[in-house]
């Protein structure tokens, strides 16, 4: 399962930005797929073939929004 969360599950600390996580529901392991450093709330979406995730990042300018893909 993939989702965003403003939490670092490895260091067990709350974050300002939202990180993108892959959560193995069988083993319980969470892997950070993306660690944006700027605060942004986003809802990641999975591609139909399940191979890529699309999500948003904040840019340098306060109004800037970037769209990123991670495989």
């Amino acid at each position: 399962m993939i989702y965003g969360a403003n939490y670092d599950f490895e260091m067990e600390r709350v974050l300002e930005p939202t990180w993108l996580w892959r959560h193995d529901l069988v083993m319980g392991e969470r892997l950070a797929l993306a660690r944006p450093d700027k605060t942004a709330y986003f809802a990641p979406a999975l591609s139909p073939d399940g191979q890529h995730v699309i999500y948003q990042r904040a840019g340098e300018h306060p109004s800037e929004r970037q769209v990123w893909i991670v495989g």
Binding site: I2, Y3, A5, N6, Y7, V14, F42, A43, L46, V53
Partner: peptide, 11 residues
């Protein structure tokens, strides 16, 4: 949780 989840999808 003391943090916020943002949506989610199954792989």
């Amino acid at each position: 949780p003391h943090y916020f989840h943002a949506a989610g999808s199954y792989i």
